[in-house]
Design a protein around this nucleic acid. Structure first.
Lengths: 203, 203, 203, 203
DNA sequence: CATGAATGAGTGTTCATTCAT
DNA sequence: TATGAATGAACACTCATTCAT
């Protein structure tokens, strides 16, 4: 009987090791040797699980995406109302260390996505999930009058653009954007889209 | 001292060549050989103007920053009012090809800045310029009642975060964010911060 | 002892798999993994039957040699006369696909044999079989006057050299040396060694 | 002024180093590192002159071909008669150490040519030179009655096949085929194609 | 015996940097 | 200054072999 190894489990571990190396050394300085060292195995061992380094990087990205998705699915399935949107947006921006890491990883791929169509497509597809969720909130809230009128696509992209911009700031200028301030700013942007008579109470 | 002029001129040309290579090939695939070829000189020649490849990359980044600054200084010195802020923000987001390239270059450095303190500091310092300008607009407009109340720092960072988020979207998802839509979204975010009675006319 | 039979049977199958991979991919691109895949077994399994990759290659070579020998033994045992020599030589050159493969395999080892004494000895020993057979024909035919005088060793090596040269040509320039032409050329070389008064009828 | 290097000269030297390594270690064991060591330079240095290892190997092969061609052109331009053909064939087979090396190199590529169309084409094209030369001799000699009748293409290929077969034997079984014997065998094969009344005197 | 994961040296190749000219 | 050849470490990846199961 051969050495029993859970192939998917091993792939997951190696993707996680890749994830840690990218965060620690930067995606440009991430080498297969360093990944192997981080995973505690030999460099040749990687070949059993990934056909190339690019596949390992992509697996790390998907790992991040998967984590994000799971969280969203668990927390926001079936919720409605302004509080739900508020909670969603607060969950969308990196307020925890873990979430900062996910955002960091995401940003690490941006420079590559700009010159790599395949990578850009991956990012584009992934961005549709939050967009769909937020748009559902927006449409519902506009119907109930809890959100200002305006093209729902525009409102959706505006909320997400502000959230993504703040996410970048959190990572790039952590001192100027501590978690409390990020929370306040997210609430502010949401409030700015609520009719004057219906302010959003903190939750 | 014509030599000095030549030297600076050559540095500038080499930084511009670096700029072009980063945009074309991606910052990870940017090599000194390719820069030399793009600049039409020998690879050894680079050493006379830059101590290392990192310095060349940084020079390309500064070149982008310098272009942005010059444009702002020229166009917005002394202007005031909501129209000026609106014009500033529309100039802040990449609506022209040239500006898209500047944003592209900027984003190319983000993944590196996240793991490189020196690079992060450069970006942080550079981000202060727009922030100071916008804050001046915000304070003035809040005094005149043309902008909603709220911590001016928060309002400033909110406007810039939305603008930066939209800039990223323009680069990453160009089809979903054509220039006209970007314009409309910038105007939308500004309008959302204006008291209900004082909408911002286009112009 | 069924185990022993199985073991030899398995060795034979693995050698045959090696044989196929060498022909398909070239001896330089032949890897143990590919052999295992071709044989439909695991890579680790090979170690039970062969101490090293070199042994597997050698086994494939011996397989080819064995096939050749068996054929000769069956077809030419006891035969004599010019027709027998002619038939032997026509059987010696690659006129069938199977034989082309044997010649291909043989040639694949030549570059290695040139720098590997052990391999060269294997080839030298194997070459003695045909040489002995042909020499027997030659001596007999010279005695009967059916073949020109001359040192029988020289005549033997001349016939075999021409046949081997034509075999190489068949493999290297298949278009210029189709089977019919190869047949004609073999008959020509034989005829050139026959006294003018005793031409060799085809058949 | 840059370091002056004769690019073609350097390429030639590196091809010669490749040539020596192939002969010494075998083409399969020939590595770029070993070539660099043999050439007395660093491995990175090779990249200035050859795009890949395959190009280096091919350059070594062409070097051999070039040497052969030069020799033929010098010695046999304008010569005619049976003595010229005899001299040509004796020059065609490896009777000198240098020529043995050329044949060795040639044979080293055969196993690759069998599974590599490009390489096979190179060999096919190169083989046309001797073929054309010998065919010219054959046609002329048949006209003058100095050579037996027969399709000139067949006679040509027969002579060359025997010569190539003997060349292989010289390399593979050097003890059984010392230079003197090779000479005698070449003369024998030529004599076998000459009408009985016109033997070829040695010389 | 069979498995296939693991190893780690070795491969061809790339590259920022150095330096003699 | 300018050149471009030279360097040698580093890279991603391959592979024959080993070995715990």
């Amino acid at each position: 009987m051969p050495k029993v190894v859970d192939h998917d489990q091993r792939r997951h571990e190696l993707a996680a090791a890749t994830w840690r190396v990218i965060l620690r050394d930067g995606i440009d300085a991430t080498t297969t040797r360093e990944i192997a060292k981080e995973a505690g195995c030999s460099s040749g061992s990687l070949a059993h699980y990934f056909a190339s380094k690019d596949e390992m990087l992509l697996a790390a990205l998907r790992l991040s995406h998967a984590g994000v998705k799971t969280r969203y699915r668990q927390q926001f399935a079936g919720r409605t109302g302004l509080q739900a949107l508020r909670a969603y947006l607060l969950d969308y921006v990196p307020l925890s260390t873990r979430h900062e890491e996910e955002t960091h990883l995401e940003m690490s791929f941006w420079s590559r996505a700009l010159v790599n169509d395949e990578l850009r497509d991956v990012q584009a597809v992934e961005s549709l999930g939050p967009r769909t969720t937020v748009r559902r909130f927006v449409v519902e809230l506009q119907r109930s009058g809890a959100l200002d009128e305006g093209d729902p696509d525009d409102v959706t992209d505006l909320l997400l653009a502000a959230a993504d911009g703040l996410s970048v700031y959190r990572l790039m200028y952590p001192d100027r954007f501590p978690p409390e301030r990020l929370t306040r700013l997210v609430e502010h942007v949401l409030a700015s889209l609520v009719p004057a008579s219906r302010s959003v109470p903190a939750g």
